[in-house]
Simulated assay, not measured.
Amino acid sequence: MKHIASHYKVLIWIGVCLVCGVLAAWAGQRYLHQQSDLLAQKNKQPMIERVVAAHFLAAGTVLTETHLATRAFPLSAVPTNSISVSQYQRLLGGTLRAEVAAGDMVLPLHISQTQVAAFSTRLVAGRRAVTMPVDQINSLAGLLRAGDLVDLYVSFDHQRRKITAPLLQGVLVLATDEHTSDMPSQEAGHYATVTFDLAPEDGAKLVAARQTGSITAMLRNPHDAQLSNKGVRGDLATLLGVNQPSAEFKTVPIIYGNKTSRQVRGVDAIPNAPRSAVLDVETPEQLSYQYEVQHALVD
C-alpha cells in the first residue's frame, strides 16, 4: 500500500511540474509578444494621405479629378507643401510643368495656374465700362444680373419743372459687384455696384447725369429692340391729371381813351388745350448694345 501511495505522489508531482512548465512557457511567450508589440509601436511611423498622380502624367496636362488619386505616406517623409485630400481642388485646372510618375505626389511647384484674363479684355475696342453704386441707381431690388439689358432714365429740375426722360436705352450690364455673366453660380441678390458697357460719349452722359439728377434703371427684354422717345414733365399731380390748370382763352386788346389797354376775351374765343405732361425727346437711333454688336463685327 505504501508503494502505491508513493507512486501516486510521484505522478502528482510530475503533473504539477508539467502544469507549471506550461504556464511558464505561456507566460514567457506572452511577455515576448507584448515586448514585440511595444517595440513595433515604438518604431511605427504615423501615416498620412496625400494627393498623387493616378497614372503617368505628361508635361502640359491640364489636371482634372481623373488625373488624381490618394496614397498614404509616412509623416516624416511628407513635404510641407504637399497637398492633402481636402485641398485637391487647388490642383484642378493647373497645367503640369513637367511629367509626374504614377503614385508620385503632385506638388504646387509641378503646376502653373492659368492666369485669369483682366476684366478689361471683356470690352470691345471703343467701349468703356462705367461702374455706379446702387445708392445712385434704382437696382431693381437686386434682380439685375450680368448680361441683362436696361434702359436708364434721368430725373432732374428744368425751368422749375420736374423732367424725367430716357437717357440711355438697351445698356448691357457687365457685372454686379464682382459677379459676371460667366459665373454659373451667380444668383440675384444684394450688391453694392453695377457695371455698364457703354460707348465713351454715353459714359460721359451717364457721369454728368448722375451728378445733377437721379438715375433709374428699367429692365428690358433682351429681344426688345424698340426705342422710346417719351418723357414726362411736371409734378405728380400734373402727371395724374389732378392739378389741371385753368383754361386759357385767346384775348383781344381794348383801349379806353388814354388809359392802359386791357385784354378781354373775344366772343368767339376758344380755350387753349392744356399742355400734356408727356413730351417727345431726342433719342439715339439704336440701342446701346446694338452698337457694341455692330462694332464687334466691323473689327
Rank of each mutant, 00 (worst) to 15 (best):
M1K: 11
K2Y: 07
K2P: 02
I14G: 06
I14W: 15
V16G: 06
V19A: 10
G28T: 05
L32H: 12
H33I: 05
Q35P: 03
L38A: 10
L39Y: 14
Q41P: 01
P46R: 10
R50I: 02
V51T: 03
V52I: 11
H55D: 00
G60N: 01
R71V: 09
A72W: 13
A77F: 13
V78Y: 09
S82V: 12
L96Y: 02
L96T: 09
R97Q: 09
A98K: 02
G103M: 06
L109Y: 10
T114D: 10
L123K: 13
G126R: 12
P133W: 01
G142Q: 11
L143H: 04
L144M: 01
G147H: 03
G147R: 00
R160Y: 08
K162T: 07
L168Y: 13
D177M: 01
E187L: 06
A188M: 01
A192T: 12
F196S: 05
A199P: 07
V207G: 08
A217K: 00
A217Q: 03
R220E: 06
P222D: 14
H223Y: 11
L227F: 07
V232S: 06
R233G: 01
D235K: 13
G241D: 05
A247L: 13
E248H: 13
Y256H: 13
S261D: 06
Q263L: 14
R265E: 00
I270R: 11
P274G: 11
A277W: 05
E282N: 15
P284L: 14
Q286W: 15
L287M: 14
S288F: 10
